[in-house]
Amino acid sequence: MAALSTARAALIATTVGLDDEQAGESPTAGALCPGGLIKHVASTEENWLRFEVSGPSAMSHDLPDGVTWADLAAGTAREILQWMTDHRNDFRMLPGETLAGVIARYEQVAARTEETIASVPDLAAVHPLPQAPWHEQGAVRSVRRVLMHVIAETAQHAGHADILRETIDGRTAT
């Protein structure tokens, strides 16, 4: 858990001194912004930890009501559009959101993750992955592998956030 705490701290450090407007800026060719990256990482961590507690059904909450991953793969325009909009908004700071609020939510997710992992008796315990176009049929994930994925995702996005920060005002978190 120390590696995850270190990656989280690196991500949050990229926003120190930014105001809400700067935290929502997308200064590169993509749509990424520092605050949106924190939102995305919090959501990803929360989803994967929910998976570890409740199994594959816990990950279907990301889909529009009544839509399965198979529906999305087959794709009617309405379902795909709704899912893409929700997913894209996970990377942005929306009107009314503040950097302090985004960080507070991330800290709440982190605290729940710490509690959940502390209560897991076996890091080798597995759940089948939900059916989705990007998961191999019948694949499973252990708690340990999910944690490694969350650590990697957090560290990767901390690097993205550092580039964004340097582009916004010339500063970096290091």
Rank of each mutant, 00 (worst) to 15 (best):
E52F: 10
P34D: 05
R88P: 12
A111R: 09
A74L: 03
P34K: 03
E114I: 09
M93L: 11
S142D: 01
E97V: 01
A161T: 07
T76G: 14
L99H: 03
H61T: 01
L72A: 00
L63A: 05
R144I: 14
A104H: 06
D169N: 11
E107G: 12
V41P: 04
D169R: 02
R171V: 13
G17E: 10
A152G: 14
W134G: 00
T15W: 07
V53L: 07
V102P: 08
T154W: 09
Q156F: 15
A110D: 11
G30R: 02
L63S: 01
A13L: 01
A74R: 10
T154F: 06
M148Y: 10
P95E: 11
G30D: 14
D162M: 12
D20C: 06
K39R: 10
V143H: 09
A31I: 14
L32S: 13
R112Y: 14
S5I: 15
A100Q: 06
A9H: 02
A152N: 12
E107I: 09
T172Y: 04
W83T: 07
D65G: 06
A155N: 04
P34F: 09
G55R: 08
L81F: 10
L11N: 03
S119F: 13
L63D: 07
T167Q: 10
G96S: 00
G30L: 11
R105P: 03
L63F: 00
R50Q: 10
A74M: 02
D65S: 12
A139V: 09
E114K: 04
A132H: 05
P95H: 03
I151E: 13
S119Q: 13
Q131W: 14
T174M: 11
G24R: 01
E25D: 11
P64H: 01
G35M: 11
T113S: 15
P128A: 14
A139W: 01
S142C: 05
A31E: 13
L18F: 11
D71Y: 02
A104L: 08
T28V: 11
L32A: 15
W69I: 00
V67I: 08
G138M: 05
V120Y: 06
H40F: 11
L72G: 00
T113E: 11
A58N: 04
